[in-house]
């Protein structure tokens, strides 16, 4: 009896490669467009511009602070979501994803309303933060806290908060995946060997999660670098004060300096590319990505 001949795999492979290849080409075309529109001269000019240099410095500072804060919050949150059962866990899990799906401008607007319209103990959160900082200043008059601006909205802390609100959600997702990939029986073994939960976490879980933690930090950093909408609404775009690289691109476009905007964009693309390559390299070591 003759059975039907197996048809060729070529159409299947062709369709797969065509779909994936088109998107790849689109991204490469975008990068090419940026690269072709700028020159080393433009980039040099941007790097020599005082306000752009200040913007690069502020971006680096805020992105690192955001990455560290995100890790501090993401590690325990990811661990709780992976290892423990508790009421409303799914609801809690979904709430954490909100910053990922919300339009960025809405996050900025929400932060603005939270700090300036929500009243606690007869004061807005903005006023409470200012009062807390003033109290710290009176206790520690010579500390570096003395140099920080009072308040949050339209100041540097607003940039960090806006970046953190979005970046942390990505870091939590990453840490959750990391902890899910670790066998919980390892902690059980550690418990029988004489550890309490805390010791098992620090001595057994955390060392194994180290690549995941680095990946979460790098992703949070990269996400913070690209943040614009919430910063624009909550921190403003004041040249030299609350200007980060994303706002620099916006400000340069608004004054008609397209070459400057593209040069800054190119710097951001380069930074993002380095970060993404680092994540992939860490991922290949970690074997979970």
């Amino acid at each position: 009896m003759h059975s039907k001949k197996v048809s060729s795999d070529i159409p299947f492979y062709a369709a797969m490669w065509a779909a994936g290849g088109m998107y790849f080409i689109l991204i490469i075309a975008l990068l090419y467009a940026d690269a072709s529109y700028t020159s080393l001269e433009n980039i040099n000019e941007a790097l020599n511009n005082k306000s752009i240099r200040a913007s690069i410095w502020l971006t680096m500072q805020t992105c690192w602070i955001t990455a560290v804060l995100s890790i501090i919050v993401a590690v325990p949150t990811g661990y709780i979501l992976t290892r423990f059962k508790f009421p409303l866990k799914r609801f809690f899990d979904s709430i954490i994803d909100i910053p990922i799906v919300l339009p960025p401008l809405v996050i900025g607007l929400s932060l603005l309303i939270l700090f300036n319209q929500v009243i606690l103990f007869d004061q807005s959160i903005e006023e409470l933060c200012a009062a807390a900082l003033n109290s710290l200043r009176s206790i520690l008059p010579n500390s570096p806290i003395f140099d920080l601006p009072t308040g949050v909205t339209y100041k540097v802390p607003a940039i960090i908060l806006a970046q953190f609100t979005v970046s942390c959600a990505f870091a939590i997702r990453t840490m959750r995946n990391t902890f899910e990939s670790l066998d919980p029986r390892q902690e059980n073994v550690a418990l029988t060997l004489g550890c309490n939960r805390s010791k098992a976490f620090w001595k057994v879980v955390l060392p194994q999660a180290s690549f995941g933690i680095m990946t979460a930090g790098i992703l949070a950093w990269a996400r913070a670098l690209g943040e614009f909408g919430p910063i624009l609404v909550f921190a403003g775009a004041t040249r030299g004060k609350t200007e980060v690289l994303a706002t620099t691109v916006f400000l340069e476009i608004s004054i008609g300096n397209l070459e400057g905007a593209v040069a800054v964009s190119f710097l951001m693309v380069s930074a993002a590319l380095i970060v993404l390559i680092m994540v992939r390299l860490l991922g290949s070591k970690n074997r979970i990505w």
Binding site: D183, R185, V189, L191, T192, L193, C195, N196
Partner: peptide
């Protein structure tokens, strides 16, 4: 608690 029972545990596949 597990650590106070003073026993040894070998799970499947060693872990």
């Amino acid at each position: 608690r597990p650590g106070d029972r003073h026993l040894g545990y070998v799970p499947q596949e060693g872990v």
